[in-house]
């Protein structure tokens, strides 16, 4: 008898849906994954969704009370939850709104209609429900998506790297951006992307969030040494991780 395939559903909350698009971009690797799973709900890639899922892949951050109800419901049904992309795992870009008091953020965006939108401070999904697997990144890296699915199917834990992007960047023998008089969040950003951006001529923006014990003070000094003022440094640290208010506070102090 053929083993029944695990049923997977994709859900999105506050985000751009770009990480789901990365799943489609897996190309033939997606076909290999589909040997082991059945997708029952995937708005970007299929019609006629079903609700009989065991595994929920959740993209996006939580930003309304309604989101909380909806995601709690998903968690009740799903045996396994995978957080997909920076918004889901660390709050992501949309958490920048947390840097200012909520009413001011609302006024900025919705002007006189601010009171019509009931939003809350942005949270990564693990502040609301338990998460079993994390796939960081903005967007997620195809290789890591495949790796996490493999771990899931083998029933083992996925170890998210706890070392900085510089480690991968050096292994790729890129010229350090600091040596090109540019700045980069690589020294404190969680690796796992294989220094994707730097390999392609960009800087690291820190989209995977900070490592467990980032040397924020040293990174702060380095950025200051490269000519960034306090506000620019705060921007660097909070482009993706504004949920962690402590970074803003630490630098200001």
């Amino acid at each position: 008898m053929k083993k029944s395939k695990a049923k997977v559903a994709f859900f999105d909350f506050t985000d751009c849906e770009g990480c789901q698009l990365q799943i489609v971009n897996l190309n033939t690797v997606l076909l290999d994954i589909l040997e082991h799973i059945e997708i029952v709900n995937f708005r970007e890639a299929m019609s006629e969704p079903r609700d009989d899922y065991d595994i929920a892949v959740i993209e996006g951050s939580i930003s309304t009370e309604h989101d909380i109800k909806r995601i709690t419901g998903i968690r009740k049904q799903a045996k396994v939850v995978i957080a997909l992309g920076a918004c889901a795992t660390i709050g992501g870009v949309n958490a920048i709104k947390n840097r200012t008091p909520l009413n001011i953020s609302l006024m900025r965006v919705y002007k006189d209609k601010a009171d019509k939108f009931k939003t809350i401070a942005v949270k990564p999904i693990d502040q609301v429900i338990k998460v079993d697997y994390y796939i960081h990144g903005c967007p997620v890296h195809p290789n890591e998506v495949a790796e996490v699915f493999k771990c899931l199917l083998l029933g083992k834990k996925y170890d998210v790297p706890n070392y900085p992007v510089c480690v991968e960047c050096k292994m790729n023998e890129n010229v350090c951006l600091y040596q090109k008089e540019q700045n980069c969040m690589g020294p404190v950003t969680r690796a796992g992307c294989n220094s994707w951006c730097v390999n392609n001529g960009n800087i690291c923006y820190g989209c995977r969030g900070l490592i467990d014990n980032p040397a924020n003070d040293a990174q702060n000094d380095i950025l200051a040494n490269y000519g960034l003022d306090v506000n620019e440094i705060i921007d660097k640290f909070t482009l993706y991780t504004a949920v962690e208010k402590k970074y803003v506070k630490e630098i200001k102090e």
Partner: peptide, 30 residues
């Protein structure tokens, strides 16, 4: 230690650093 940002560049580029980790990777046929 206070100045160190912990990036690991110094050990990666060192001609005599030889520490390594051992990991298993399984292909998609599991």
């Amino acid at each position: 230690g206070k100045r160190c940002v912990g990036c690991g560049n110094c050990t990666a580029v060192c001609p005599t650093c030889y520490c390594f980790d051992v990991l298993d990777e399984v292909s998609l046929n599991l």
